[in-house]
Design a protein around this nucleic acid. Structure first.
Lengths: 340, 340
DNA sequence: TTGTAAGCGTTATCAA
DNA sequence: TTGATAACGCTTACAA
């Protein structure tokens, strides 16, 4: 039956209740190096329990000059791939005893800037940025804003690419896409359409490039590259357009994101085309719904949770080993049956 | 080119730079009621811009005695339904100028308690709780912890049910499920299996109950109620078990969550059964992947973003209108074709 | 209208 | 080991 107190017990209250000084109370409840007599120790602890004391993090932060906050900025938190990433970040943050604050930008460059500025007010220990197009008119403003955050002592870590000399944590998308291309060519596919992103996002570019390399190396040919948005609906629309232009049976469609690939498959299904038997589709990410889609989707599994975990690690130990890009793994499913 | 400063410019720096007092600087940059001479105003603003000043939120919080933080506790942030909810909360929080902190509990009662306690340290303006089983040995401890948080001035809002006399914001799941049951009976289904949750989560219970009411009222019959976990895999396994026990063609399976329903459909597909034509499946939530699953899933659309938005509203204006439960909407798709 | 100064809840330095 | 007390960065009476 804790907290009979009104309006949050303060350290002062605890000290008075225990009959010790503020300093002593602080030492037993929060201070690191223990050097308080056992008798005092228990008295203070008892008082704290009785009053339901919880340190005021804001006050601790202003006094200590450092917070226990880690911030994360994402484009769309309802996105499945993002969800997996956030889960990894959240878990690692929790394990490190940090509070996680999340901000979403909705792919809006102006919001990105606004958000970083707002987050800066928190003086976070670090900021993990997921949504960062490589270029565009606002890119330099964003970079400046990120530097300002660094200036307050927060480590900025960008997922998937280097911003200026901001450290990055990444997956080996190019190698994974290449392996996928090779494997699918080995399965008998000869012609492929690539659906890439209409934004300059390095990870997506690496996937398109890697796929081309692997597929061509193994004897395949890219017949078209189409650029679309990164949503499920964008994929649906792109597939409709492809269908209208005529899509030969046996064609393979490689999509740089599962979310988009799933839209593609649904469009094919709605048009009466059999995904797999007729048109093959492959994606990238291995989001949870990939295996349950119109056809179980062949894709490349990205260890997003681990990526998130590494990002917080990079924030916490900036001079860490500087791990290499995380390996990804090709997962062949029914959406790309063998054609031999 | 902002922030030439080292280690974060402070209000003090700005005041000195502008040649005014701390108080004046505070007034123009943060204070509410404007009463600073225009000339000073511009000088201070200029100094702030020059130095790249951003108020230290922690310091503001300790001085003001109130924070600009809203906290959210969820069971699984990678879950699709949760993602939609979080998106709504995030947007509303942003609009209200609040920072959002997120904590995940992984359905672990002990973690729930730990998390609330940790969050309490932040003295958030409010806490939105998504993951709250109605009962269990730890329920009262959780309640006590939530009350402790209230004691520090934070408003606790629970999604989907009332905890003690904590206000709740909810959707009308029972009515929605009932409408779904009726509609499906109207489509010609006569026998249904219900896959419910193995936890005592009010929303899921309401869905099971509502469905039974509607389905039976319209002449249907529930032949079995099976309880499982709330994940996709739990659904997959449940369907396997159902198949082993024998599943008559024409049977309808109602699942209280889309995520689980999608697992069910995949299990049916993997077993060579045609979802829709052979076995019908219906879910609840309308998560993004529902329309793209093994068969487009009939479900009940829950306005989760709006729910999240309302939750922050409830935090901000505790004596608000006390809105009624949000309406939900039946969405019939191919997984439950008419059987006339 | 502006500035001085007393807090806000903690931490940390420095005597005792 | 313990306890005053000066910070921490900011807000806000209260004076000037």
């Amino acid at each position: 039956m804790p907290a009979p107190a009104r309006g949050a017990a303060t350290l002062h209250d605890v000290a008075r209740e225990a009959g010790v000084s503020l300093a002593t109370a602080s030492r037993v409840l929060n201070g690191s190096t223990r050097k308080v007599a056992e008798s005092y120790r228990v008295r203070v602890q008892a008082a704290a329990d009785l009053l339901g004391y919880t340190p005021n993090l804001s006050a601790q932060a202003t006094a200590r000059g450092t917070t226990a906050v880690i911030a994360l900025m994402v484009a769309d938190i309802a996105d499945a791939a993002t969800g997996r990433l956030v889960a990894g970040v959240a878990r690692a943050a929790d394990e490190a005893g940090l509070v996680l604050t999340v901000a979403v930008t909705a792919h809006d460059p102006e919001r990105e800037i606004r958000v970083v500025r707002a987050l800066r007010g928190q003086r976070p220990r670090g900021l993990i940025v997921e949504a960062a197009p490589a270029d565009g008119p606002d890119a330099s403003t964003l970079t400046a804003e990120l530097e300002a955050l660094s200036g307050t002592g927060g480590r900025v870590v960008v997922i998937g690419r280097e911003v200026a000399d901001v450290p990055a944590v990444a997956t080996d998308d190019r190698a994974g896409a290449s392996a996928l291309g090779e494997e699918l060519a080995g399965l008998g596919y000869r012609e492929a359409v690539v659906i890439a992103a209409d934004r300059d996002i390095p990870a997506f570019e690496a996937r398109a490039t890697g796929f081309r390399e692997g597929f061509e190396r193994a004897g395949g040919r890219i017949v078209e590259v189409r650029r679309t948005g990164v949503s499920r609906d964008a994929g649906y629309d792109a597939a409709r357009a492809l269908l209208e232009a005529g899509l030969a049976p046996g064609t393979l469609i490689f999509v740089v994101r599962d979310a988009v690939a799933i839209g593609v498959m649904s469009a094919l299904r709605d048009a009466g085309r059999a995904v797999g038997a007729d048109i093959a589709v492959a994606g990238f990410d291995d989001i949870p719904s990939a295996a349950d889609a119109a056809a179980p989707l062949t894709t490349v599994r990205v260890p997003l949770e681990e990526l998130g975990r590494r990002a917080v690690q990079a924030v916490l130990e900036p001079d860490g080993p500087g791990e290499p890009a995380l390996a990804v793994e090709v997962v062949v499913r029914a959406s790309t049956p063998g054609r031999r």
